[in-house]
Design a protein around this nucleic acid. Structure first.
Lengths: 192, 192
DNA sequence: GACAATACGGAACTATGATTCCGTTTGTCA
DNA sequence: TGACAAACGGAATCATAGTTCCGTATTGTC
């Protein structure tokens, strides 16, 4: 099932419970404040003490990385689902992008991660980003074969556009409509 | 000439000299490190002590705001120049965008400002952003009248795209080509 | 050249927030 | 149920970086 965590055979019941509570609490606080979230706030939101947070995650960065990693995993899943789905390839690609954007629209931490702030989070999500790249490549290729995506579009264009849309999302003045940005971005991929 | 600074009639010669040195030094350091630049570094780069930096600018934010403000002013200038220039309206708009992007490609602080991080810098550049909005509106309108820009494009789409391109520029992993992003963005404005 | 006034430099002060430490509590197992 | 290990909570610690303060140096003027 899980090939990454082989070290912790049996966690005490309260510890297992707290682990989940911390992830939930941290998700809320990181979503709101991004990388500048404070450990005290995360502990409070999780209903545990700071010491407990540190028992479960060695640093704030490690905790944030774990959350971002999980979100990226869900990106991979939705991408894989689109690959096996029916229907117009362009719309499948567009659907994945729209879905993923909606998913992270309220999550400042993930937006920052996609924008490539924070070296540790970036490094700690390498596997997921790689998988994501493969999925994106395949989705783009299929739409190109169907003639609906410009032939000069590369798989790297997708995360680049996402990066831009995340900037729009996390703009403090909230003056822009990220859905508009997304539609413009997808238009730029479309074959003429 | 200057309607904003009426309070300081005559600055001592060394002070005037240092003021310029600080602006130069700060430009370099903010360009490299953005908002997380350190005052010590700025002082060192300027060849003065930290106390002197604070004699000239009340806070780090105020100093950064002044630098960003100046860059925005130069955006306005290049936009105004394009308004009075000859040639295809789309290419004039595109030229302004390319030029401004090239100008800030190495300036993390300005990129962050455009992305709307930092409330104080945002608030402190209101006038310039307003002027910029007017210029952008006019440039877009003319290209629309010439039929080369989609009719549904609003002036707000321009800063939104810029915001996205700045995210690409400031990506730590430097894996994206912001010029590519810019070209995609401009393609999305083009009338079909 | 001497005196104010202005400006400078950088050590010291402070605030903030991540991380550690240790006395107390809880879960597990015989 | 008692003992022991595992886990908890949160006050104390530590590090960082912005800002202040004040003794010293420079400038401009008479």
């Amino acid at each position: 099932m899980d090939t990454t965590t082989a070290a912790k055979p049996t966690l005490r019941a309260d510890a297992r419970r707290n682990h989940e509570k911390i992830i939930e609490g941290a998700r809320t606080v990181f979503a709101r404040y991004g990388a500048s979230a404070q450990m005290e706030d995360i502990a409070r939101a999780s209903g545990v003490g700071v010491g407990t947070v540190y028992r479960h995650f060695p640093t704030k960065e490690a905790l944030m990385t774990e959350l971002v990693r999980r979100t990226f995993e869900s990106f991979v899943e939705s991408g894989r689902a689109a690959l096996t789905a029916e229907g117009d390839p362009f719309e499948r690609l567009a659907g994945v992008l729209r879905g993923n954007c909606e998913l992270i629209a309220g999550d400042t931490a993930v937006q920052q991660a996609i924008m490539g702030a924070g070296a540790e989070v970036w490094a700690g999500t390498e596997r997921e980003r790689e998988e994501l790249g493969e999925v994106a490549h395949e989705l783009v290729k299929r739409a190109q074969e169907a003639g609906t995506v410009r032939s000069d579009v590369g798989a790297d264009d997708i995360p680049m556009l996402m990066c831009g849309i995340c900037a729009t999302m996390s703009h403090k003045a909230k003056m822009f409509d990220w859905r508009r940005h997304l539609e413009l971005g997808m238009d730029s991929l479309r074959a003429r």
